[in-house]
Amino acid sequence: MALNTPQITPTKKITVRAIGEELPRGDYQRCPQCDMLFSLPEINSHQSAYCPRCQAKIRDGRDWSLTRLAAMAFTMLLLMPFAWGEPLLHIWLLGIRIDANVMQGIWQMTKQGDAITGSMVFFCVIGAPLILVTSIAYLWFGNRLGMNLRPVLLMLERLKEWVMLDIYLVGIGVASIKVQDYAHIQAGVGLFSFVALVILTTVTLSHLNVEELWERFYPQRPATRRDEKLRVCLGCHFTGYPDQRGRCPRCHIPLRLRRRHSLQKCWAALLASIVLLLPANLLPISIIYLNGGRQEDTILSGIMSLASSNIAVAGIVFIASILVPFTKVIVMFTLLLSIHFKCQQGLRTRILLLRMVTWIGRWSMLDLFVISLTMSLINRDQILAFTMGPAAFYFGAAVILTILAVEWLDSRLLWDAHESGNARFDD
């Protein structure tokens, strides 16, 4: 018995066209964080690309023209004298008006014999932002004059995390709450300039795509075929072959399989920071003279006294001054041990922890910024005066060393310790 099946006739004509040209192939790229070699397709503007294995951002879609970056830099340069030299806060102490600005706080630190601690604050609040705007201006002028731009481009990517104007702005709020127990506070004209400078700096850093600047100024022929001998440069993120001198053909720094002496430098910085954190938390970090009496505060006791007036601000200072430094030390110690013992479990967790400490590390400088600003506000000789204690130097040095330890660690070593050939990683 035959089955009668109805015929289905399409209502619209289906047209099949042959592909007349070869589909576009992607360029081969190595991930600078996990060293995976993959094919990167062509990316349009405002599109980002991520590593298929570790999800690290390979290409950032946010990109401004150099002219727009230069305009932002010149605007920031105009704001800087007002943000640093004009009063941020006014207080009335014992019937006398006192003005506080950024430069005055750094000068008070240096004047009291601790120039190293003052230079830490100076670099993060004044030096690094000033280098940022002058570097962008150098790129703008240098591109037109045919100057060598490689050193500036190499420095810009590392400079971003040292620009800490946003953290200093939080420190202004913390210092205001600490001082309000002794005097009446009012915002100064410099505060508005400083807030504007923070906003412009944040926007500029978020749109400063150094890798795209490398592509514009020093374009290189990408690798179009897969080759395990391809290496990625950690300076400019170019994937290719080393030249005859073993250097990256684009930025001219040595092109090595792994960062040289990464573990040794990381261990040295980490152990030194552990040693410095002990006096930083045991010795007094601030000293207040009130009517001839002397009151010393460690980091913890200062947080407890701050909690009596504002528990939320005390929580912020606790996280930045105690929780973050010790968390960074514990995480980095764990990561280094996992590399030495070739741990194969929990790779995803370790990668996330490394990215976390990379982002939060700079916030530990908050305590030094609060001390710097408070020193310029309260300084009335023996009637009422505020000065920093010996722990300030140890704390600042420990924070900087932990930042350097994270920067010096080559994250690809975590993958080397893991089993080879993993296309995915999980716990």
Results as ranks from 00 to 15, higher is better:
Met304Phe: 09
Arg158His: 15
Ile330Ser: 11
Ile185Tyr: 08
Arg62His: 05
Glu407Gln: 10
Ile403Glu: 01
Thr67Pro: 14
Lys178Ser: 01
Ile185Asp: 03
Met103Arg: 04
Asp227Phe: 06
Lys265His: 05
Asn143Ser: 15
Thr67Asn: 14
Leu368Ser: 04
Ile8Gln: 15
Ile126Gly: 06
Gln295Ser: 04
Asp297Glu: 03
Val198Ala: 13
Ala18Trp: 10
Arg355Tyr: 14
Ile131Glu: 00
Ile58Trp: 09
Ile403Ala: 03
Pro32Glu: 09
Ala187Met: 15
Leu66Trp: 15
Leu404Trp: 04
Leu277Pro: 02
Pro52Thr: 10
Phe141Gly: 04
Ile378Thr: 01
Ala272Asp: 02
Ile172His: 04
Leu276Met: 10
Ala183Arg: 00
Leu23Asp: 10
Gly389Thr: 00
Cys51Tyr: 00
Val203Cys: 14
Thr75Val: 15
Gln295Gly: 07
Pro6Trp: 07
Trp64Phe: 14
Lys328Pro: 00
Leu409Asn: 08
Gly142Leu: 06
Ile285Ser: 01
Ala83Arg: 02
Phe238Pro: 00
Trp92Glu: 03
Leu368Ala: 05
Leu132Asn: 04
Asn148Lys: 04
Glu212Asp: 07
Leu337Val: 09
Pro222Asn: 05
Pro390Lys: 07
Leu384Tyr: 03
Thr15Asp: 13
Leu409Thr: 06
Gly235Leu: 01
Gly20Glu: 10
Ala269Trp: 03
Val370Trp: 00
Ala417Trp: 11
Ser273Asn: 08
Glu296Gly: 07
Tyr218Lys: 06
Gln382Cys: 06
Glu157Phe: 15
Asn101Met: 02
Val125Ser: 09
Leu132His: 03
Ala196Glu: 07
Leu23His: 11
Phe238Leu: 05
Trp415Val: 09
Val357Phe: 02
Ala71Asp: 00
Ala128His: 02
Cys31His: 00
Arg221Cys: 08
Ser305Gln: 06
Ala397Leu: 03
Arg144Leu: 14
Leu404Asp: 06
Ser273Arg: 00
Ile351His: 11
Gly293Leu: 06
Arg245Tyr: 10
Ala56Gln: 08
Leu276Asn: 04
Met1Asp: 00
Ala83Thr: 04
Val179Glu: 01
Leu255Tyr: 10
Arg380Phe: 09
Ser39Gly: 14
Leu283Val: 08
Tyr241Ile: 06
Tyr28Leu: 15
Leu153Tyr: 03
Leu94Gly: 02
Asp427Arg: 13
Pro390Leu: 07
Glu22Ala: 09
Ala137Ser: 07
Gln55Leu: 14
Leu89Tyr: 09
Arg59Pro: 11
Ala320Trp: 00
Arg225Thr: 10
Phe38Pro: 13
Leu149Pro: 08
Pro41His: 12
Leu66Cys: 10
Phe238Trp: 06
Cys233Leu: 00
Leu263Asn: 05
Leu366Ile: 09
Trp267Tyr: 10
Ile199Ser: 14
Phe341Asn: 10
Ile311Phe: 09
Met72His: 02
Trp64Lys: 11
Arg247Met: 09
Leu213His: 10
Pro242Leu: 09
Leu132Glu: 02
Met332Glu: 11
Ser321Lys: 00
Ala196Phe: 12
Met36Phe: 14
Ala268Asp: 04
Trp415Gly: 08
Thr9Leu: 11
Trp92Val: 05
Ala417Met: 10
Ala314Pro: 15
Arg97Tyr: 05
His252Arg: 04
Thr110Asn: 15
Pro279Arg: 05
Leu270Tyr: 06
Gly173Asp: 00
Trp162Tyr: 05
Ala100Asp: 06
Ile98Leu: 06
Ile116Arg: 06
Arg260Lys: 06
Phe386Tyr: 01
Gln108Met: 15
Gly246Cys: 05
Val152Ala: 07
Val179Gly: 13
Asp427Glu: 10
Ala268Glu: 02
Leu335Ile: 09
Ile91Val: 03
Trp363Ala: 05
Gly118Asp: 03
Leu300Glu: 03
Ala423Thr: 14
Asp367Ser: 00
Leu69Tyr: 15
Asn148Cys: 04
His184Asp: 13
Ile330Val: 13
